[in-house]
Design a protein around this nucleic acid. Structure first.
Lengths: 242, 242
DNA sequence: GAGTGGTCTAGACCACATC
DNA sequence: ATGTGGTCTAGACCACTCA
């Protein structure tokens, strides 16, 4: 039955975790907001506090929830989006840490791309396609092509290049209530194409690295596809293997 | 106090975890072997079972212990060492999965290398340095330079190239009781040097990828430094960002 | 001080592996 | 059947945050 609540259903911590996932996906617990206390959830679902703790611990592990000792447990608002640029080893003028800049070059609506569809399994028929250059100390270092599914991100199609914030992931969170909590990177090597080379003040055919990234939201669904090109010689990628 | 045991010391799960770490590091719980049951540990340390469970859960998370439902909890015997080669995208003759081969080219004792020391913080004064080629379907794809600290791995210095097994990490476990449970990779691009090119049947100056890997044991100490070179055009690296 | 999450206890019962 | 780890309970008390 769809609408009725059985008076007493068995609730293991995994079933509880599923129920909590549902609250997040359904928007009942909104992104960045606090969820009810463990004690009140235990009462609501008719289980011991320890059981709600175990369910919450699992979701916290997955990155969906964030625990704050003494305060509350919140729905994650996601990664900050700086995670791409830290892979390039550009030295700065002095020791100071310079914030990267970003410039949107173009924005248009296109048909679903084959490569994108294969990586994301999106079923939409059109996409928002954005070209962007990222700079460190005003020097362009990364040429990005970013795809977003429509109609979810339709509001962006009316944006002018200057309307975009520096970091996209936090903007997705604020404007669309989409939190990016995981991404997969695929690093490969190729020769730089003319468009990319021009944008980066380099020669066509220069050794280039391409990072294809799929970003996932709280529910595990792909929300963004991003393909970034940079100078291979200036590139360093760090990863932990377990 | 250093030597005496107080009859009753407070044992939080973190202190317990430290005690368990000590048992592993001291060799009292040996690599690949089962540790005592949760109930007996609880009795031995004078805590509730739940507390030993929490301590064990933490060490399992770190990869030091592996839990086997219904059997026992074991000290990890580490990764299998295939983790490097999976990053290359060589297609095989047919659909079958071909096991990679490995050939040791040379083995010698050298002074502590600066690059190696910087990455590992090793304090030893000499190293074992090994050159190795890894092949897929009898085609060489990876030229590896492997460093191991002495005197820990002294026994290997008398080995002949054919004495080495295909996978090194399991060999470290068997022969030296060293389990590799974590590694960090640093991926960069460069031009292939003559020696590497010769070993891989490629031209000097061909675009190459270099993966510098530090492998860590159960206690978090670096146990191996490995620098691997391959064809950049055939390379794909996958990683998850969280 | 009130409310939240963090630690710990003691015990019951379940699920799995092995003999 | 026995022993192991996995789940769950009910409650005590601690540590942290904030009004």
């Amino acid at each position: 039955m769809i609408t009725a609540n059985h008076p007493k259903t068995y609730m293991g911590y995994q079933a509880l975790a599923s129920a909590f996932r549902g609250k997040v996906e359904g928007g009942e617990w909104s992104i960045g907001g606090a969820i009810p206390s463990e004690a009140s959830l235990a009462k609501e679902f008719g289980v011991a506090v320890g059981t709600t703790r175990q369910a919450i611990a699992q979701l916290a592990e997955e990155g969906m929830l964030v625990k704050r000792h003494g305060k509350s447990t919140e729905v994650s608002s996601g990664l900050n989006g700086q995670s791409m640029l830290r892979f390039f080893r550009y030295q700065l003028d002095d020791q100071r840490q310079l914030a990267p800049q970003a410039k949107v070059l173009s924005l248009k609506t296109v048909a679903l791309d084959k490569e994108v569809a294969a990586a994301t399994n999106w079923a939409c028929k059109s996409l928002l396609k954005m070209h962007r250059v990222r700079m460190i100390n005003h020097k362009p270092v990364l040429y990005e092509t970013i795809y977003l599914p429509l109609p979810k991100f339709k509001k962006l199609s009316t944006f002018k290049p200057n309307d975009f914030e520096e970091l996209l992931y936090p903007m997705y969170a604020k404007q669309f209530k989409v939190a990016v909590i995981k991404a997969t990177d695929q690093v490969g090597f190729e020769l730089m194409k003319k468009i990319e080379a021009n944008a980066l003040n380099m020669r066509e055919g220069h050794p280039a690295v391409r990072v294809r990234r799929v970003a996932y939201d709280l529910t595990g669904k792909p929300v963004e596809y991003r393909s970034s090109v940079g100078d291979a010689m200036a590139f360093q990628y760090f990863a932990e293997v377990r």
